[in-house]
């Protein structure tokens, strides 16, 4: 039977290793057939912003196509797809007040707006909880 893992994250994209680690954990949990709830707090709400664009790399001399620069919103969209394929649930909650203060309301399909109440309710229903704070 599928278990549910809840993770709270805070780091914005492209700043720390925490983001990649959190997404690795989500990927592994979904692959194992578990449900995952992510509560994106503060800068982490920027992870799913729709307007993210890959860029060329002038130092390496690569074009946009050659560089294939990753965007966090694409990684997360792929995690939603993984959940769908495995018939499990990925719930991604962007903290609404954090979204407002950053103007980060335009996000990819999948996440929803929420609050600390949602985090608390998800935590209560979960089999495991991990908080990864920004330093």
């Amino acid at each position: 039977m599928a278990k549910t893992l809840t993770i709270a994250i805070m780091d914005p994209p492209y700043e720390t290793a925490n983001t990649t680690t959190a997404l690795r954990i989500v990927n592994a949990a979904l692959t194992q057939g578990n449900n995952v709830t992510v509560f994106a707090y503060e800068g982490a709400v920027n992870l799913t912003m729709k307007g993210q664009q890959p860029h060329a790399n002038p130092v390496k001399g690569t074009s946009v196509e050659q560089e294939q620069h990753p965007t966090t919103k694409d990684w997360i969209a792929s995690l939603f797809e993984l959940a769908r394929k495995n018939s499990v649930k990925l719930e991604w909650i962007n903290c609404g007040l954090c979204v407002d203060e950053r103007g980060a309301g335009d996000w990819i399909e999948g996440p929803r707006r929420g609050s600390p109440k949602d985090f608390y309710e998800a935590a209560q229903k979960s089999d495991g909880i991990l908080v990864i704070p920004a330093k």
Binding site: Y41, E42, S115, P116, K117, F119, Y120, P133, A134, K135
Partner: peptide, 26 residues
Amino acid sequence: TAYRATLEEQDDTILWLNHSLKNNGA
């Protein structure tokens, strides 16, 4: 962690979060 963006937020976001959790029954 202390004084993390407390000026931009006008408070500490973790103290705030915990107060919010408490208000929601935690």
